[in-house]
Computed example of a mutant assay.
Amino acid sequence: MSGDVNMTAAKKKGLLSPSAKENLRIYWYKFTRNRLSVFGLILVCLSLLFAIFAKQIVPYPEHIGTFVDYANASQAPSGSYWFGTDQMGRDVFSRVIYCFRGALLMSVVVLAIAVPVGTLLGLIAGYYHGTKIDTVIMRITDVFLSVPALILALCIASILKPNMMNSMLAVTIMWWPWYTRLVYGQASSISGEYFVKNAELVGASKMHIMLKEILPNCLSPIFTKMALDVGWVILMGASLSFVGLGEQPPTPAFGQMISDGASYMPDMWWMTIFPAVGVAFMILGFNFLGDGIRDMFDKGGH
């Protein structure tokens, strides 16, 4: 009895978790085997720092909003303006760094809504595989998936007032079906396993079976897809912003800056190139990170 008490106390203090620590070491080892994954993690961490501390990092925080300085307009990159200035005299570097905040905010909001909704629908359809519930959910999902994602997002955003919130809504509406399809495939195969049938025999509720028995076995592909999807959401948001359906001026956005700078190519190349590099920076980071997460959960790895 005293031994059990000691073990419980040790667990509360965090002294007894050798298996958990070993699992973490294994996961980290699998992740770090691919150097590009570590590089992606560094890029993602930098992106988060840029987004959180944008106003503290940038040299000209006043250039983020409404600001005009025609005396320094259209300057090429220099010691004073690392990425040059735009046609209004605003520092491109300061505005590019601030774009990280809007891009990450969009990806977080979109995935925070799309992933739970898509996952829950996929679980329900997969567990009730072959029934009318499965048919209704998956046919609706197929309708959304039949339309190219960008075209659907453009159609939805064009109907709504162009701003950041509505662009998030447009991307979210077309993003959940991918998770429904992913989880449906996993859940429909897992629902026939013995441990699921045993849970049904002992009287476990259907919600318990879906959330406690099936869902944990779907988390690996979900997490991998989430990491990869951040880059795609950022690209989708930049595309909407490029055509004027995203964040509105004077607040900077990657697509908006690229679109504005395209009118001045090739003379003022820095207005387009540096925002494009910012988009590539984030997409590469999250794609490499997603590859690392996939390797980390790969049960066949050594």
Rank of each mutant, 00 (worst) to 15 (best):
L121A: 08
L145R: 09
A10V: 01
W176T: 04
E247T: 15
E213L: 07
P116A: 08
L16W: 01
I124Q: 13
Y29V: 05
M268H: 15
G237Q: 06
S94W: 01
V196D: 00
A157L: 02
A76P: 15
P61N: 00
G130C: 04
D295E: 14
N166S: 08
M271D: 01
N163G: 05
F242R: 03
A114R: 01
G237A: 08
R90C: 03
D91A: 04
V277N: 02
L284A: 07
V202R: 15
P249V: 02
I97W: 15
I173E: 10
G203V: 01
M296I: 04
G231C: 06
Y184S: 03
W28E: 00
V109C: 07
T119Q: 13
Y29T: 05
Y70C: 07
V243I: 14
A125S: 14
D295P: 12
G14E: 00
I156N: 11
T180Y: 10
R294W: 04
G118F: 13
F67A: 12
M106C: 12
Q56R: 15
G278S: 12
F242P: 07
F242G: 07
W175M: 11
N163S: 04
H63N: 12
K13M: 06
K225Q: 07
P221Q: 08
F288I: 08
F195E: 00
S241Q: 04
G65R: 13
V171N: 09
E22I: 04
V171C: 10
L48A: 11
Q186G: 11
S78T: 02
V115E: 13
A187T: 08
A238N: 10
G290D: 02
M271V: 01
S107Q: 06
L145F: 13
S241W: 03
Q248E: 09
K21H: 00
A114N: 01
P266Q: 01
T141C: 10
G126M: 10
V38K: 12
T135M: 06
M268Y: 15
F93C: 13
R95H: 02
L245A: 06
F223R: 08
P266D: 00
M165L: 11
I159W: 12
L235E: 02
G65E: 04
S146F: 14
T141M: 02
K21W: 02
K299E: 00
A51N: 08
L284R: 10
R33G: 02
G14I: 01
T172N: 11
F223T: 06
H63K: 07
A71I: 11
M265V: 05
L215G: 07
L15I: 03
W28H: 06
L284W: 14
S47D: 00
A112C: 08
L48P: 11
L160D: 00
G40Q: 03
I64K: 15
A76M: 13
M207Y: 08
Y70E: 03
I140G: 12
E62F: 15
P148C: 09
E62V: 14
L15N: 04
L36G: 13
V44Q: 12
V202D: 14
L41G: 06
G79P: 00
